[in-house]
């Protein structure tokens, strides 16, 4: 049995890493806003954030395909700026993955921030810490479990992405052929041996990542005062 091309696995890891990083950066302020706002638009924002949880990936993928196409405003702007198309490209996949995995980053962070509550933030303000400073020195360390969960779930969810990628990215080697697509293709061409190997690699990889996280989580107990 020959070892299959590991390019798709590597591409999946790259996609998941970039997506997770961007989600943590932009999901954090969104989650903080959701956790602290008393705005009447909060339910609307929460519903939109949670949409990818219930929508079939094909629906999300379909809208993304239309939104990202060079004929659309966004896709057109991107093409004018970079000379490339957003659809059927790695950049397009990143954008799609960010939307697709958004709730997996925002919801754990929002829950963690709500758990911190106003108390410690008010205490920090009374000790002369500005809002941003209090956020970085009190809310973030108290929410480290939330960050860990958000990061792992976003990463794992992006690795396991299939439908959206198929709709937006297609199957271009080195560009958009991620591991789930590669496995699908092997099965379609009745190459079950290769499909077995790729599936096993993904299974072991996912298990090891989750195991690492849960072990780390045990050794990093959150002290409750």
């Amino acid at each position: 049995m020959s070892l299959p091309d590991l390019g798709p696995l590597w591409l999946s890891i790259q996609l998941a890493a970039v997506t997770t990083l961007i989600l943590l950066i932009f999901g954090t302020p969104l989650a903080w806003w959701l956790a602290t706002t008393r705005s009447r638009f909060k339910p609307v924002a929460e519903a939109i954030t949670a949409l990818p949880l219930v929508l079939p990936p094909t629906v999300l993928g379909f809208y993304l395909l239309i939104m990202l196409s060079p004929n659309s405003t966004l896709g057109g702007l991107w093409r004018d700026a970079t000379g490339n198309s957003l659809t059927f490209s790695f950049s397009g996949l990143v954008l799609a993955s960010i939307l697709y995995s958004l709730p997996f980053a925002v919801q754990p962070l929002q829950a963690a921030f709500e758990g911190v509550g106003r108390g410690p933030m008010e205490a920090a303000a009374s000790l002369r810490a500005s809002k941003l400073n209090a956020f970085l020195t009190v809310a973030v360390p108290l929410s480290k479990r939330g960050f860990l969960t958000a990061g792992v779930l976003s990463f794992a969810h992006t690795i396991g992405e299939f439908g959206v990628v198929l709709m937006v990215g297609g199957n271009i080697p080195g560009q958009t052929r991620v591991i789930s697509i590669a496995i699908y293709e092997k099965v379609e061409t009745l190459d079950y041996a290769q499909a077995h190997v790729l599936s096993l690699i993904l299974l072991v990889f996912s298990f090891v990542v989750l195991l690492l996280v849960y072990s780390l989580n045990r050794r990093m107990p959150v002290r409750v005062g």
């Binding site: 108390g119 008010e122 205490a123 303000a125 009374s126 002369r128 500005s130 809002k131």
Partner: peptide, 19 residues
């Protein structure tokens, strides 16, 4: 804003930072 007033506040529930 509170952090610019120089007012110290001792809360009933202490609010020590648990981290």
């Amino acid at each position: 804003p509170p952090h610019k007033r120089g007012v110290g506040y001792v809360f009933q529930d202490t609010r020590l930072f648990s981290h």
